[in-house]
Design a protein around this nucleic acid. Structure first.
Lengths: 191, 191, 191, 191
DNA sequence: CATGAATGAGCCTTCATTCAT
DNA sequence: AATGAATGAAGGCTCATTCAT
């Protein structure tokens, strides 16, 4: 017994998967429709056009990711604990929303994103930048540009996750803990 | 007196730039033709179709990158020196072939790559894997899956380079040295 | 207490207005439904499809117009009185059914009209032809093909009415009398 | 041996015929392509889109018609001679460009016409208005709004021509002379 | 009966690819 | 060999029509 607007969810889910796997340009509306088991025209009942669909998707997941990172953020604890919180956030978010983070990563600089999407993404970066800047002030994070450090964290984790998704390596607790440690070492200040 | 097949080179060069900047799907044959200053039909004298063109391009640069990494590889030196060699290779390659590494990174998992392209890319990964496996044996590299470590190195450097290309940060010597150090710390074994 | 099939009337009324203002092809079923304040599906309870709807509408108003012209037709009076009757009929009909005559005029040669619609329109022309043929016999109407004269009357009046509807000129008594006189002069026999 | 850009002409010719017969909205690009014996895509080599095509067509024929009316205009002669000149212009233009005048008449108030098209059409009306206003000043034309008189002339002639085109009546010299006389009587001042 | 969500045929348009020159 | 005009398959999108509620 499908809930009221299952179709909208189905469309978003199919679009997310396909955009993540093939990219926006290589994903056609008929592909999404087929995958979501709806007629092509139905997509236009829920989204004005293909660009509105990506932007909706993008904003939704960026916002959700940001909330995940912000939720119970341990501001009063040490930098390492904060890093752990962020890293766990990435993992949790990725586990809950399979293709979302990869989609965000591969589409965050795309020509079709509107102001709101860019703004939402910017807000996400702000959280990470703020964390890093604080850490740099306390000499606990390397004195590299925040964006470069974010790139390393993000890039590393996502390339890793791509491998996990492809089934090439397994996502054990130990592995994830190890990768967190690795990323932390990449980012932290070494005396 | 232009070399016999300057046109082929021109086409490849234009395709590289455009694929890197806009992506394969958003780049049209007429765009490439215009940029290369040849007729659209001419492209089909040198490449059977658009997919053959990307695959040719991809294989060419992946191979070149691999050769860059292999060239004068300091097998007889310490692990840190080897890492430095690899990292410098990335930088040198990127400096010599402006868009190539970014193109490789953004297209290495694409639906249109054929077996040979995937194979070539795999061969590239092998070099890095070999380096890491050796290091792990010697307890000088973290005991994480090589592919995960590669992902971190690759991902980090390339996300960084994206920022450099976008003009958001400057590619100073110090920055690159700092990033190398950061990546090394991500990868090396900590006692 | 609304009559049994108010909805059918509402639909026809909305369709008339929209077809007259935008034309058949540029008018969508949802537009008609919205204007008539019914669901889109409801239209299909009363009309098999869009073409049946136009044809119904066309036949209805052509028939009504014919009846208006025939009503109290002064067969026993002079040709000028008969002309006046016809001209007044056009005016009266147009006043009572705002968009109807314009709709008839702009759609009477359309590809989507069926045999019955064409027949009904033909019957309308017959009245005018009969009037003209009589007049020609009595040497009171020009010896031009009836259809040509009809075209002049019809064409002139309707182009005029278009201007009135567009608000470019005002529909004063004097103007209408003047136009009637003009049309009459176009049609009558000049010794 | 087709001239350099026969295709452009073919497309315009086919579009003119189809727009006149079915109207802009009911005419599809594939229809035009089939009629012009070109591929659908070819139309877009010559016209940016369907709207540009109609506007090009509209401006071309309105301009041509205006030139026909202006050519050797007998300003120095009497009002009746001027009327004759204009009427002959309509006939000549219609004979030379079969569907053009009907196309102009049925599309001159359409939503898809751009400023330039509207301007061109306005210029055409100016000629006729100027003729009528002069005549009214000299008490040789009825004191009805110029636009109403134009409507009568235009409307009458075109409805007539529609019949001729449909083969329902024949376009003999005598007929045309008679219709001209009829229109003139509709328009001229009767003392 | 009435509704409007859902559908898919078909439209406009783009672009990879062909081929006459 | 090189070109670019021509093509038509395919994509995004609209809307007449259906049908479950």
């Amino acid at each position: 017994m499908p809930a009221a607007t299952t179709k909208r969810e189905d469309i978003l889910q199919s679009a997310l998967t396909l955009f993540a796997e093939r990219g926006f340009d290589a994903t056609t509306i008929p592909m999404i429709a087929t995958d979501a088991k709806v007629g092509a025209g139905t997509i236009y009942r829920y989204f004005e056009n293909k660009e509105v669909l990506v932007n909706t998707l993008f904003q939704h997941y960026v916002s959700l990711f940001r909330q995940t990172l912000e939720h119970q953020y341990p501001s009063d604890q040490g930098i390492r604990e904060q890093f752990h919180h962020l890293f766990q956030g990435m993992i949790r978010f990725t586990n809950e929303h399979d293709h979302a983070l990869y989609f965000i990563k591969t589409h965050n600089a795309s020509y079709f994103l509107n102001e709101e999407s860019r703004g939402e993404f910017h807000r996400l970066l702000m959280i990470l930048e703020h964390f890093l800047d604080e850490g740099k002030n306390k000499k606990q994070i390397r004195l590299l540009p925040s964006k470069a450090l974010i790139a390393i964290m993000f890039g590393g984790f996502l390339e890793l996750y791509k491998l996990i998704r492809a089934g090439e390596i397994e996502a054990s607790e130990a592995l994830l803990a190890g990768v967190e440690e690795s990323c932390w070492d990449a980012v932290r200040h070494h005396s």
